[in-house]
Each structure stands twice: as structure tokens, then as C-alpha cells.
Design a protein around this nucleic acid. Sequence first.
DNA 1: TAAATAATTTAGACAAGTCTAAATTATTTT
DNA 2: AAAATAATTTAGACTTGTCTAAATTATTTA
Lengths: 220, 220
Amino acid sequence: MTTSTEENYLKAIYHLSTGNQNSVLTSAIAGSLSTSAASVTDMIKKLSEKNMVEYERYHGVKITRKGEKVALSIIRRHRLWEVFLMDTLKFKWDEVHDLAEELEHVSSDELTKRLDAFLGFPKFDPHGDPIPDTNGKVHSNGQVLLSEITKKGKYILSGVNDHSPSFLQYLEKKGLIPGSIFSIVEMDEFDNSMQIIFSNKKSIFISKEVSKNLLVRSHE
Amino acid sequence: MTTSTEENYLKAIYHLSTGNQNSVLTSAIAGSLSTSAASVTDMIKKLSEKNMVEYERYHGVKITRKGEKVALSIIRRHRLWEVFLMDTLKFKWDEVHDLAEELEHVSSDELTKRLDAFLGFPKFDPHGDPIPDTNGKVHSNGQVLLSEITKKGKYILSGVNDHSPSFLQYLEKKGLIPGSIFSIVEMDEFDNSMQIIFSNKKSIFISKEVSKNLLVRSHE
DNA sequence: TAAATAATTTAGACAAGTCTAAATTATTTT
DNA sequence: AAAATAATTTAGACTTGTCTAAATTATTTA
């Protein structure tokens, strides 16, 4: 059906698609997958043959509904495995991403279904990201990138966009984990950094680098 | 380190090695993996380069201690996943083999270790086959092929060598599951079939085809 | 033990996925 | 709007694992 490699390309394209309506550029995919632009062009042609993406030479790709369904089913598996690894096998939140990256390609819908039931039909993974349902619906529940926020106020950390161990360890050190509640104290126009304060009065600075990888919801 | 394909070859060679001291022939590996003899020759050369097998042209291979360790670690993972799929996710015993065949190649010793702990350090998989320990030791506990038995008496079914759904479904229909206790009533020299009887007086015939895939231990 | 048969290996090719270097097309700058 | 720069694609090659057909080596049979 689809190979692991194709699945990884579709996941990358899907992730690069969310948020902006534009086509996803070859170079963006290459960057995201740490591969060469030439390889991306080759794979894009293949995915286009299979109607997983719409490809216009020199102008990148748009994912089709068919491709999106595949991507979402892989993301669903990925996030369910992450819950399993943390809740059941007691891994730490910065250890689960790479393992889930392998487990997600085990190709059995029945396995996914039973895993989901065993875990009690979780709606979010350990990083706060929503788990797409069987039909490929994502309940994003008003998540926004912290970097896009213009209004001071109270927010809850609901997810992250960078799952690398180093980023997650950095967040944990700063006291930022999914569910953390904080208020924005100040936003600096110059470098887009911001200062936030937790309910325990502890206050920290957050750079644009960091805030563009944090998903938040308004709180109260 | 080792690719999935290499791992599958090593597993096959290991399984074909147990029981007989001889070299494993190219054609036997090809048969076991449903591939061509030419492909086997190619892979054998590669495994020989890596000191996983000792290869003598035209005379098959012997697995080395190094190759055996890899095979046993894969078999360990395979059987632990089978326990997980049956005990935790409630799959039936004829459904777990193919899934475990995929899961076994997820390459993390830490994952295997935690899965083992979560399952309560099981010593046997759902088919009755022993789970090799971390050091690659197998506690075979006196298992013998039913087809090799020459003495009438009472036996307990402790494992199977064929994990195909069709074979397992056949066994279940006949009342043969791991732990089943039976006595050999008669052994026919002509076609190597045998008649066995369960404690509930039910009696069945077993052909050589079947008995050579059943592992038993003497009971009392 | 020589001929026939069976098993194994070699040769050459193919598919998937990758790469670098060169050619082509887009975009930006002046 | 032409020149310079940046992005993308093409061309050609490499790796892993596979195949078929032909050549070679072992084994069996007469």
C-alpha cells in the first residue's frame, strides 16, 4: 500500500501544511526530513502518481484528502504509541517520540483499535497534541501558537510542535509542561520575546524560537 | 547495525539450526523465507562479512555465536510482543504471529526491557515457546518434537513450531493447546501417525505432518 | 566411475530510495 | 527590465535487496 518512506513524506507535508494555505515547497520538505531537494522531487512525483499530493513543477505540492487521510492515520498511531510508552511503560516525555516514530509504521488497523481501547480512548498525547480519531478528524480545540498571540492574558500550555528531547528537556527545566497555566506579562515588539509568569509567581523569558513551538489555549 | 532483512535471515538460519548439528543449506533458507536461492547466496555473503555466519561455498552456513545472539534477541522481542498482544490486547493465539513479526524489528533494548517488566517477566509465549533471556539463554526445559518420541506414555503440549493461523486453528479445533495433557495410545510404524487420548477420554489421530510441529514434555 | 540430476553460485538486470553536479526556472536586486 | 541569486529539476550514479537464466560444482544413479 504505502511504504514507511512514503508515510514519512506525507506526515511531513501534512505538518508543513497546517496553519498556512499555501503549497509546501520542496526545500521545506527537504529541510524537515533532512534529505536533499533532489530526493524530495523524486518522491513527490511518486506521491503525485498515487494521488496523495497535487504537484505543480517548480511550485511545490498540496496534500490531497487521500494523502491527508494516510498522514492522519499515521499521526494517530504515533500519538497512541506515545501514550502507551508513557502511561504503560513509564518512559519520560522526551524519550517517546523516536520510539513512536518506529512503532507508527506497524501496519495494522486492528492493532491501533485495540491499543486505543486498552489505553481508554485517550484524546491527547503526552505532549498535549490531539489524537486524530478513526475518521481522520482532529479536535484541535482552539490551540494557537504562542508566537501568534497578540493579547496579554492567561493561557494554558496544550501542546508542542518540536518533539526533540533537547527541546522537551529545556521546557521541563523551565517548568513548562502540558497543562501549565501562565499569564503573559510583557511582549517585546523588537525581538518577539515575551515574559510569562506562573501562578506560583515564578517568571521566565521566552524567545521567539521557543514560542513558535508552543501551542496554547486561552484560560478563563 | 543490522537491517530487518538481515535479522529475518538470521532468525531463519537459527531456527533451521536447532536440533541438527549440520550446516544449513541455501535451499532450506530459501524455502523458509520464500525467496530464491540466488538471493540467499547474496545475503549469506553479507552475513559472512559481518561474522554472523560461517560460510563455505556450496556447503551452506553455520551460525556463529555473534549471529545467534542477534537471532535470540529478535526471538526474545517477538515472543514478548506475542504475550503483550494476547494478554494485554486480547488478540487470539493465531493472530499474534504476523504482528509480532513487524514489532520485533523495532530496535530498542530499553523498550524490550520495559515491556518485559510490564508483562511480569513471562518465561513462555502464548504458543508455549520459551522466551530467551537478556543474555540469550533459552530454557528449553526438555522439550522434544512429538514426532521424535518412541515411548508411549503421558505428555504435555509445551510448544509449536509452525505459527501459521491455519495450523493453530486446526490444533484448537482438535483440542490441542499449550498445556494440553494426553497419552499416546498407538504409534503406527508405517506412516508415522499416532493416536492420542486426552484425560476426558476424547481420542484423536495425529499425522506426521502435525507431530513434527508439536513440542512436548514428558508428564509424570 | 562416467553420466545424469540436483543444488548452488555467478552474471546481469531491476525497483526503491538516496546522492552530487549540472541544467533549468523563479525570484530578487539594482 | 536585465543581471544576479536562489530554488528546483534532471541526469547519472550508488546501495540494498530482489529476480531469472546460465554456468559451475556436488551428488546420485546406473
